[in-house]
């Protein structure tokens, strides 16, 4: 089985996801959080696990993930999360 792994497919999916991710929100978040927290390792592991879990759900659920996903709710929770982190940093300034 090992020999017939389609290395070309791995390469294509690596490059596609890499390019899709580079300009994405989570990349910006990794930069911001990686810089602000005194524990960059925790940020790296947290970000990686989150991203891999999200893409795993994508692979498992396939097309259906879009239907039953309350995207508006999830994204608003994420927005609140990022806003809270930003405000916490700003308030800890004083």
């Amino acid at each position: 089985m090992i020999t017939d792994i389609d290395w070309q497919l791995i390469g294509i999916s690596f490059i596609t996801v890499f390019l899709a991710e580079i300009g994405d929100k989570s990349q910006l978040a990794a930069i911001a959080l990686g810089g602000s927290s005194n524990n960059p390792r925790a940020v790296f592991i947290g970000s990686t696990v989150a991203l891999i879990l999200a893409s795993l759900l994508g692979v498992l659920a396939g097309g259906t993930v879009a239907q039953f996903l309350p995207e508006k709710l999830l994204k608003s929770l994420a927005a609140i999360g990022f806003a809270t982190m930003a405000l916490r940093i700003l308030w800890s300034e004083q």
Binding site: S37, S47, L51, A61, K75
Partner: peptide, 19 residues
């Protein structure tokens, strides 16, 4: 980090590309 990035990623571009 995990919660915010996971929530932001759900249904996002990267997940759709992989999907």
């Amino acid at each position: 980090t995990f919660i915010t990035i996971f929530l932001a990623e759900m249904g996002d571009k990267t997940q759709l590309v992989t999907l």
